[in-house]
């Protein structure tokens, strides 16, 4: 159990996920002191069996980067075996259930980190730092375009990481949400319009599956005294010599986001700091409100901590 260890000891982590995620995990973990990569697993049942072995009993924590449908059972196994758990967001689409899971882990003294990876990208970290420093003044307008051809999901829950990002950058839950979109054979598309208590606003659009629109991301944040622009358009490189003509290429950003997340997770375990996943509950509430608005073609408004149709 992680919280019984000395901080000078090495933490043993196991990964749960597919090979590409495991490779990224391995690369990211190499940046962190005092940790050992003990291998990988995938199914919750296999992890359950592993934990019952002498090898498994020595594992301090598990990093689960699994499809959404597999996360719930993995959370249960980790809790049963008192393993610190890093799990990719979301683990549920019910904010109350997330709160219950969070409470159980906290009461049992088991670190739980539900990872909102979008917050940890180099761009988001840089912009949040500028916001927190006061250089940009009061956040006024956040604009995000995310056109994703690699995601498998096509529903509105794909917006959750960016809705979380908006809530994080404004430091408050939006008062109003208006969602429009369409799901067709060509792809799924949603756009969300947020209004914040300080009068600020956000526009987030997300496309999945449209041919030729893969992997484009743009974020701009306009504040009262400054602005930040993180834009794939600006960051594209050009490749010539291709038979099909010039191509634009985005320069990779390595495993910075995962490294930062893992570092935070390891610090929670080592320092025995109780984890709090309130941001995950907020993000799920926000996404559920976006869905409510979309299904009813009306804005949802925050009243007494709950989103209802306006």
């Amino acid at each position: 159990m992680a919280d019984s260890r000395s901080t000078t000891e090495v933490l043993r982590l196991v990964h749960a996920g597919a090979p590409p995620e495991f490779e990224a995990f391995t690369r990211a973990l190499a940046h962190i002191d005092g940790v050992q990569n003990t291998g990988s697993t995938y199914e919750a049942d296999a992890f359950d069996a592993m934990c019952s072995t002498p090898f498994g009993q020595q594992i301090d924590a598990v990093v689960a980067q699994l499809p959404f449908t597999m996360r719930k059972s993995f959370v249960g196994v980790a809790f049963d075996h008192k393993k610190a758990l890093f799990v990719t967001s979301p683990i549920s689409r019910d904010a109350e259930k997330i709160g219950e899971v969070d409470r159980r882990f906290r009461e049992a003294g088991i670190p739980l980190l539900i990872a909102q990876s979008q917050r940890y990208t180099p761009a988001a970290q840089t912009i949040k730092s500028a916001v927190d420093s006061g250089k940009l003044g009061v956040p006024g307008l956040l604009r995000i375009h995310r056109w994703d051809n690699t995601s498998t999901g096509d529903d509105i829950w794909q917006l959750q990481p960016d809705l979380d990002l908006a809530r994080w950058l404004f430091g408050a839950m939006p008062l109003s949400i208006y969602t429009t979109g369409q799901q067709t054979d060509d792809g799924a598309y949603h756009q969300v319009h947020l209004g914040f208590p300080n009068g600020g606003m956000a526009l987030i659009d997300h496309a999945v599956g449209f041919q030729g629109s893969s992997d484009y991301y743009s974020l701009s944040l306009i504040g009262s005294t400054g602005a930040a622009y993180a834009d794939d358009h600006h960051n594209q490189q050009l490749l010539f010599g291709d038979e099909e003509g010039p191509r634009s290429l985005r320069t990779g950003q390595g495993d910075v986001a995962l490294t930062l997340l893992l570092r935070e997770f390891v610090k929670c375990i080592a320092d025995q700091v109780p984890t709090d996943n309130a941001q995950e509950r907020d993000a799920v509430s926000l996404t559920a409100a976006a869905l409510l608005s979309f299904e009813n073609r009306r804005p949802a408004q925050l009243r007494e901590g709950q989103y209802d149709l306006a």
Partner: peptide
Amino acid sequence: GTLAIGRIGAASHPDIGEIKIHVLGTQGA
């Protein structure tokens, strides 16, 4: 569609301001 518009202050951009058009299509963007 969406429109974002503002007179955002001289400090917020090195030039006259960010003016961009994004179009998402069925076969590209």
